Amino acid sequence: MNILHIDSAITADASVSRDLTAQIVAKLKSTHPDATVTYRDLNTGVPTIDTAWFQAIRQTPETPSDAQKQIIATSDAYIQDIRDADVLVIGLPVYNFTVTAQLKNWLDQIARAGVTFRYTAEGPEGLMTGKRAIIAYAAAGTPFGSDLDFASDYLQHMLGFIGITDVTFVAADRLAFDRDAGLARARAALDAIAA
């Protein structure tokens, strides 16, 4: 088993999502001791897509400049992480009702037509199939799955868009109101996951 472990919280050791992703990875490794883990801490920085990215990635120059080669290599590396993974474990801290900027940047880097999805006569088709994702959702005030939660549906949609439809959530929500109850809900969801 190859595990891609992704964190994006800005709160360092105080992060609930980081703690949950670590617990999820530990549970997977307890039943798959030979599993490999690739770790990406998106909080260290993920380049935003911009005009230079568009020109390097979408316009596919025949002879890319050194700067364009670096842009392409960065995006390709994120995509290769996913290709190599059987399971993605993604920390989803909710800031201002949605995904972190870093996680959004990562999603923008990996959503590439002809690489991770393609357009067909029936609509878009994800190309990163046969993988599983376990999402560690953590929110101080946003109830998981509520009308205020613009994070979980979005992340699940984007994963499905590139072909990852087996998605499970471990949610610790409403932590600012009743931290113990929120963590208990997450523990119960974690215990229910088949490793």
Rank of each mutant, 00 (worst) to 15 (best):
I79S: 02
V37F: 01
T74R: 05
D86S: 11
A67G: 00
E125A: 12
V99E: 10
T98K: 00
L42Q: 05
L107Y: 01
T98W: 00
V94A: 03
W106E: 01
P93Y: 04
T48M: 11
G91S: 04
Q55R: 12
P47I: 03
Y95S: 07
D84Q: 11
Y78N: 11
V94Q: 05
I110T: 04
I90D: 06
V87C: 12
P47D: 05
G45Q: 09
A101M: 04
E125W: 10
G91Q: 06
E125F: 03
T44M: 06
Q59C: 01
I110S: 06
D76G: 08
K104Q: 09
I49F: 08
Y95V: 13
Q80H: 12
I57Y: 01
Y39C: 05
K104V: 04
V99I: 14
L88K: 10
T116C: 09
L88A: 10
P47H: 01
E62A: 12
W53Y: 08
T120S: 13
N43Q: 14
Q68A: 15
T60L: 12
Y119G: 00
D50T: 02
D66K: 11
D81K: 07
D66I: 15
D66M: 12
T63E: 14
T98Q: 02
F97K: 01
A52L: 02
N105H: 04
P93V: 05
P61W: 04
V94R: 06
W106A: 00
F97N: 12
V46N: 04
L92I: 08
A56E: 05
D108C: 01
A113M: 12
I110R: 02
I90W: 00
G126A: 09
T60A: 14
R58W: 09
Y39W: 05
A56P: 02
T48R: 07
E62P: 10
K69A: 15
I72S: 09
T44R: 12
T120V: 09
